[in-house]
Design a protein around this nucleic acid. Structure first.
Lengths: 128, 128
DNA sequence: TAATATAATTAGAATAATTCTAAATTTTTA
DNA sequence: TAAAAATTTAGAATTATTCTAATTATATTA
């Protein structure tokens, strides 16, 4: 594993945010001035293929990268905010329902975050 | 609802595939020669905002559109093939675990489809 | 029905995320 | 150290999607 790859993995594993390739690039730059965005994409692809990071796709936003510790995701339908949540592990229950072997599962919970609820209420009140 | 929107909804609801905007555009063209891709995007955005269609994001592939009948998705990690599966409804169980109100959830099961397993086995055997 | 307003569609440019290509550099191996 | 392999760089290319402004269609009202 190269220094860049190692550092990228550290950035992902050490952050509780969900960083885009661009954001990871900016942080990697603090450590390696001369690095380039394509390098970040290259390394992220390798790390992803080796199963060392996860990739989270939410429509309307660039892919974000996350650690592989078991957890689920909350997605605000208002602002796209993505946060972690640890819910009951469904592996066994899902595998029992499937005829084929499952590799893993991704569970996303759609909701409205506090800020977006406030904004909605604000709008509603204005119109009353 | 305009004729285009109506027809797009028909295409999505009447297909067991998961069509991209481009694919929907091609089918809509059979019905309305003069239609343009931007119109499809416009209408898909409206239908999505009205909650009449779902949007499925899988990293590495363009967004695909799906009907809103309750079901989950299988995603082949080899070829990206997306298929429907109806698993136990988790709404109640998930809502019980959450402190906040949930809008909906998306569950994706990662697996290797038959074709991809065959290909892998082919490769493995070649190397044996 | 004519005039007006509203909404949808079109054409095509713009943007943003990501991938690709080819050259340069670094690392590893013989 | 020479050769081979892998990584990185720079920047062009691609792709999906959005935006803009003009045009057309639809609905509303006088």
């Amino acid at each position: 594993m190269t220094k860049n790859a190692e550092q990228i993995l550290k950035i992902i594993n050490g952050s509780c945010e969900h960083l885009s390739a661009e954001q990871i690039f900016l942080r990697l730059k603090e450590y390696n001035q001369s690095v380039v965005l394509a390098t970040v994409y290259n390394n992220l692809a390798s790390l992803y293929n080796e199963g060392l990071v996860r990739k989270i796709s939410v429509e309307g936003y660039p892919d974000r990268y996350d650690n592989v510790r078991r957890h689920d995701h909350l997605i605000c339908k208002g602002c796209g905010k993505l946060s972690d949540i640890v819910l009951e592990d469904l592996t066994q229950s899902l595998q029992n329902q499937l005829k084929i072997p499952m590799l893993s599962y991704d569970l996303k919970i759609n909701y409205f975050c506090e800020d977006c609820i406030k904004k909605q209420q604000g709008l509603t009140n204005d119109n009353d």
